[in-house]
Amino acid sequence: MKKVLNLLLTTIIIMSLLVGCTDNDNNTPANSSPKNTNDATEDFDTNKTINVITREEGSGTRGAFVEIVGILEKDASGNEVDKTYTEAIVQNSTNAVMTGVTGDKYSIGYISLGSLNNTVKAVKIEGVEATPENILDNSYKLARPFNLAYKDDLNPLAKDFIDFILSAEGQKIAEEEGYVPINTNPPSYENIDEQKGSILVAGSTSVSPLMEKLVEAYQELNPEVSIDIQATGSSAGVQSAMEGTADIGMASRELKDSELAELTSLSIAVDGITVIVNKENPLENLSIDELKSIYIGEITKWNEVIK
């Protein structure tokens, strides 16, 4: 009994200690906590350094971002160098990037459009807002396709599944999940005869969440079917599709020429990449060049991009 009581008291003390710490923190005059400030932009000091947040090497989001923005430099002999600023903080998930940007008002990061919420502020790129419409008409530049890759001799079940993804039902799921459907006026899915069997879909961890929803819906229509998803990463997924160990590969990037020689690529949705800053940041718009300069460390102060 005494032990339990002791434990309880300890927990309470620790809790109050934690609360105490945060309170102190908020009361320090030097720290103007975002929550207490009414006017967002008033005390944003543009002389401060930009705290750049990026994703880890190998991430599909980073891969697409560095390629589109031009941070990835290619030379004639096929060498590719990712010039991302070495002082950039590396976070390994979309959530971690958002937490970083929410907590630090001088930071900048990028996330998938599907994950954007109101804790952060999205920046316009070249004056264009990141919306599904702008991505669809190509005016918003930071977008990447979600691709499927498969061999031509596809089995009937996999073929039917792909038909489902491209149908009105499948594209609606993509839209509900926050992605941009590839097909604005798709045919509706016709379940001609009930499918049986099992297939394996492997690849990008960015595409997997969408794929899970698609499989769920497909299995409701075809209860006899089992579809396994392996989130192994774009390159690994395409590799297994080439080797035949997976029926369909998922990639959150365009396929390389060597891969296209063996596989057919099919785009199923488009995902926008949103550049995000803290809500206190007055920044509204960035050009691709400015964005590139920030991410390779040429622009390091906010006053160079906020006029």
Binding site: E56, E57, G58, S59, G60, T86, E87, A88, I89, V90, N92, T205, A231, T232, G233, S234, S235, A236, Q239
Partner: peptide, 27 residues
């Protein structure tokens, strides 16, 4: 950050962090 830090107020990446951060996408 995967680079040699030059002061204690700079970021740093540890061996364990390097493995966990990149394992998911590495091929």
């Amino acid at each position: 950050q995967a680079r040699i830090p030059s002061s204690i107020t700079e970021g740093v990446r540890t061996l364990t962090a390097n493995i966990v951060i990149e394992m998911a996408y590495a091929a």
